Computed example of a mutant assay.
Amino acid sequence: MKVSLFITCLADMMYPEVGESVVRLLHKYGCEVDFPELQTCCGQPAFNSGYQDEARVVARQWIRAFEHSDYIVSPSGSCTGMIHHYYPQLFEGEPEWKAKAEALIAKTYEFSQFLVQVLGVTDVGASFPHKATYHPSCHAMRLLGVKTEPAELMSRIHGLELVELPHKEDCCGFGGTFAVKMADMSEAMVCEKAKHVLETNADVLVGTDMGCLMNIEGRLNKEGKPIRVMHLAQLLEQGGTSR
């Protein structure tokens, strides 16, 4: 099975180790992974800020980069959600580009979705004897419907004590450009989220979007209460190497 990695801006620039974990896990299950070098931003920051023309330019580049891929996998529900839900809207007046976008949507998956739904994997043989809590990101959960897949994967990690995060479905306040445009509101939201994370007494905070995890980790560090933050792919891959 041939898979193209869509790394996303944030992971590429700040968390490349997340992409490395994704690739190692995909290799483990027989996937041939490539990295289209033409890939760039999905266009979400421009789109969310109201710059639809600029977002279309970036989205066309993204489509060109992946149009020959068999499957596209990303460690971000947010960026995957942008492609699934807003590309058709972006290209509503351009039938050729809309058709190209829809063809790619059908084979573009968030990482945990791909593992469970396409590869049929729910147990990667990982061992991680620590207490963890899980933050479900808004876009993965609400736009893509990623709800059961991360839980299925984590429930089969040997030794992992998974503690439910209070008010887990509340937004962390990041929201990409929202955190910049509505900084005061964003800060209030992440303070509340950090408080709930601390209530779990977890050693590790797990998520599927590094934007959310970066935001929460930043708040926890600011309060002098650092908790280890891990993308789900890192948890599964590192747990597999320790067993």
Rank of each mutant, 00 (worst) to 15 (best):
C171L: 06
L119P: 07
L165N: 02
T122W: 07
K131Y: 06
R156C: 11
K98H: 03
E164V: 00
V124F: 05
S155F: 10
D184C: 13
Y134A: 06
P88H: 08
Q89C: 04
A188M: 14
H135K: 01
K168R: 09
P88F: 10
I83W: 00
F174Y: 14
T148H: 01
V124M: 11
E187F: 13
A194Q: 03
R156V: 11
L160Q: 14
T177W: 03
G145A: 09
L162H: 11
L143E: 12
V121D: 02
G175C: 07
A103S: 06
A103P: 05
P136T: 13
E102M: 10
F174P: 02
D203F: 03
T122A: 11
T108P: 00
R156D: 09
F114W: 12
D203C: 08
L160S: 14
V146M: 06
K193A: 04
E169A: 15
L160N: 14
V116A: 04
S137G: 15
Y86I: 00
A101F: 05
M82C: 04
G159I: 06
V197P: 02
P136H: 12
L153V: 04
M141H: 15
M82E: 02
V116D: 00
I83G: 11
C171N: 05
D123T: 01
V121N: 01
V146W: 04
P150V: 10
F114P: 05
N201A: 13
V190M: 09
A194R: 01
F111R: 00
T80V: 13
L165D: 08
K168N: 08
L162D: 06
E102F: 01
I105L: 09
T108W: 08
K195H: 15
E94R: 11
L119E: 00
L104S: 05
D184V: 14
C172E: 03
G176S: 01
E164Q: 02
N201W: 01
A106F: 03
A179R: 03
T177R: 03
D170E: 14
Y134P: 06
K107W: 11
E110S: 08
P166I: 00
M82N: 03
Y87D: 02
D203T: 05
H84K: 13
A101R: 04
V116Q: 07
C171Y: 02
H85T: 08
F91C: 10
M189K: 12
T133M: 03
L144K: 02
P95A: 09
T108M: 06
I105C: 12
A101H: 00
G145R: 08
E161R: 14
T108A: 05
Y86L: 04
A151L: 14
D123N: 13
Y86M: 07
A179V: 09
A132W: 04
I157Q: 12
V190E: 10
E94M: 10
A194C: 07
A103L: 06
L144G: 07
P166W: 03
E152Y: 12
E149C: 00
A183P: 08
E96G: 07
K107S: 14
A183K: 13
